[in-house]
Amino acid sequence: MSIRIIKPGLLSTIQDLGRLGFRNTGINVNGVMDVFAAKSANLLICNEENEAVIEMHAPGSTLKFEEDALIALAGADFAVTINDIQIDTWRPIWVKKESILRCNGAMVGKRLYLAVHGGFDIKQWLHSSSTNLKAGCGGWQGRALQKEDVLPFRKSCRFYFQTESSVHVFPWKVSESELPFYSKHPTIRFIPGHEWEELAPTSKSLFLNKGFTVKKESDRMGYRLLGPPLERQKSRELLSSAVSFGTVQLLSDGQLIVLMADHQTTGGYPRVAHVISVDLPLLAQLKPGDELRFLPIDLKTAEEALLSQVKFFRQLKLACQLKLEPILLC
């Protein structure tokens, strides 16, 4: 009833949708970088959307299933094979015991999510399974997965389902038209930050019209962007206050940083922009060298996009239940 890690990959951690309720004590939210992919992977196999998943970074992990399992992969295309059979993302997959999952590269995208039906049997810390790498808490022993780790499933599953093959990919998937358009050159929508108006007019124009390249000093805490230096009309010191996933801050050298899932709870740099929630998955899939552009939208439009995504996930949940329930015996 478990998965064994054969090769750890670059950085694989256990994450859910984050540790909420403790930001006021400085405890980071953490959680998956690509919320769309993680929710989809869970819903495809009839999990709650907040169930813990494995988040992999390219190059991903090699895993061995020590029990039959119903799984889903979502996010970047890592050219995954199971027992040397090519496997599609965004679909439910039934895997026989002893199967080996390998990642063979990533053309576009940076992070892949693996969900297991029923979830992993992991002790939560502060009501969440997300890994806080800095504090060494939560997730799997507070750290990235290592060779020979054995992650237990919460329940064993049997299916009303017969196949000779060691792998069965179900013939339905998340509709292509609903998927985030992962790209190396995405347009990222934002709402202006509180200090947006303090930018010099030329800097505003540069922000809106130039591309910004993700630097290699980018990780789950934040992405450093390389672009034309931006200036404020007058500089004033700001007191620290709360920041959020997607906050774009202007550093003192004129360069930008976008805060990501492992960001600190508070910060004192000017807030130029906030990436809207539904576009965070596009950011989450960027690699160093990829180039993004910013597009302003208003808050009402951002909320509407978020609401329609909530609606989409409710439909996906219902559709997946209808499809899978007849064959699930657990």
Partner: peptide, 21 residues
Amino acid sequence: FIETVPAYSSLTVFYDVYLVK
């Protein structure tokens, strides 16, 4: 309502847009 973060002179409130609406 999800949670707050008090700071020196500001308070930030995090919320679930769908549930608020």
